[in-house]
Simulated assay, not measured.
Amino acid sequence: MRHVVVVGASAAGLAAAETLRREGYDGALTLIGAELDFPYDRPPLSKQILAGTWEADRLALRTLDQLTALRLDLRLGVRATGLDPGLRTVRLADGDELTYDGLIVATGVRPRRLPGRGGHVLRHLADAIALRKRLAPGVRLAVVGAGFLGAECAAVARGLGCEVILLEPAPVPLAHAVGDEIGRVLSRAHTEHGVDLRTGVTVTGITDGGVLLDGGELVAADEVLVAVGSQPNTEWLDGSGLTIADGLVCDEFSSAGPDIYGAGDVARWHNPLFGVSMRVEHRTNAAEQGMAAARNLLHPGARKPFAPVPYFWSDQYDMKIHAYGYLRGHDEVRVVEGDLEERRFVAAYRTGDRLAGALAVGMPPKAIRPWRQAVVTATPWTEVPRVPEAPGRAVEA
């Protein structure tokens, strides 16, 4: 293997490039990124950058010297526009065409948008900086979508003195991921901090004066943030013959085709630990899958399935939220430590007859770390411990 191309210069792509070098690959290595910025961390965009407590230079994943040491052909500010696996070529928007021996696809996702003019999204550094400039005491911000991204931005905006309207089509925000009761507990934190939370509403478009609901009502706002999910960046793979279905479809090794691997937000792969296909948009998974893809590409005779326990975290007001496992599609939730009303608890999630994950709010990290190993070993639900002073409390999802 003499030339490896990595398309996508964020956490997954950079992790892949570093792993290739660390594993002894000494050939040509091209890293392609659509943004002009050097690889940077995205989770702080909706937290420290939006709040103005960090400067942008703190986001850099590596220094210039560290990137130089990787001996990269670093192509920033250029997109990949096409792939021919037969000829093993990647076409770029600047007209260049690269021939590869191995390819890692790490092109990430982009925010979904709504019809109409205006409105902010939050994916890139420039997005966070642009929105931060518009937030000031008294500014009325409408946040469309009460998922983790929308909730984090709503919390930051309240901390900056903005009036915040949080609009969510589901009856209970985040219920699909964490369950109804825990979704209501997390939502109460917003209402207690003065957020105007409106659930069961559908936004049909954005206007100069705010957002329009499906019944015709105008929700007035000075600024609008759209946080209604994302779309995998796979259009450049059209016509390549690779399978696309809400992401680049990969097997348990993260392989999408001959010497082609996917990593990060764009990759939908079969996770053998849970027996399901999943696409995970979390920072930790991006780096881990980038490393796994690089190893499997370099060592085809010793490939290992990529079977992680997904991990995510979120900061909202004084709430620290941590979760391990695959919580979507769960059948039951049980509080195993702490108290929901105090927003200080650990909850365990059942899928089928096994422990699928655990979520902690307001607890020290050590309270949830042991649950990761319990998920790895597919602990039977009958062995999930109950807190003696709060036994048997089960919540149907």
Rank of each mutant, 00 (worst) to 15 (best):
E181D: 15
V185F: 01
L92D: 05
D57S: 14
H176Q: 15
G257N: 12
H282T: 08
G200I: 00
D73P: 06
R386N: 13
P111L: 10
I49F: 06
I104E: 06
H176K: 14
V139I: 03
G119M: 07
G362Q: 13
D251E: 12
T204C: 13
N233K: 04
L67E: 00
R268T: 10
A307W: 00
R344I: 02
V143E: 01
D259H: 13
W313T: 12
V228N: 09
N233R: 12
D196I: 04
L248G: 09
A348D: 04
L125V: 01
A263W: 03
R112Q: 14
L103F: 10
G147C: 01
G329F: 11
L167R: 02
Y311C: 02
G147H: 02
I129C: 09
W371Q: 04
I260W: 11
L141I: 01
R21E: 03
E223L: 01
A155G: 15
L76I: 06
A367D: 07
I260S: 10
E383L: 13
H322Q: 15
T202P: 00
Q316S: 08
T351H: 15
V6L: 07
V219K: 10
T351Q: 14
R295D: 01
R75A: 06
L72K: 02
D180I: 04
V105L: 14
L212V: 09
L36R: 15
R113T: 15
R350V: 08
A302M: 05
P310Y: 05
E383V: 03
D37Q: 11
D238N: 13
D315Q: 14
P85M: 08
R71V: 00
L122P: 08
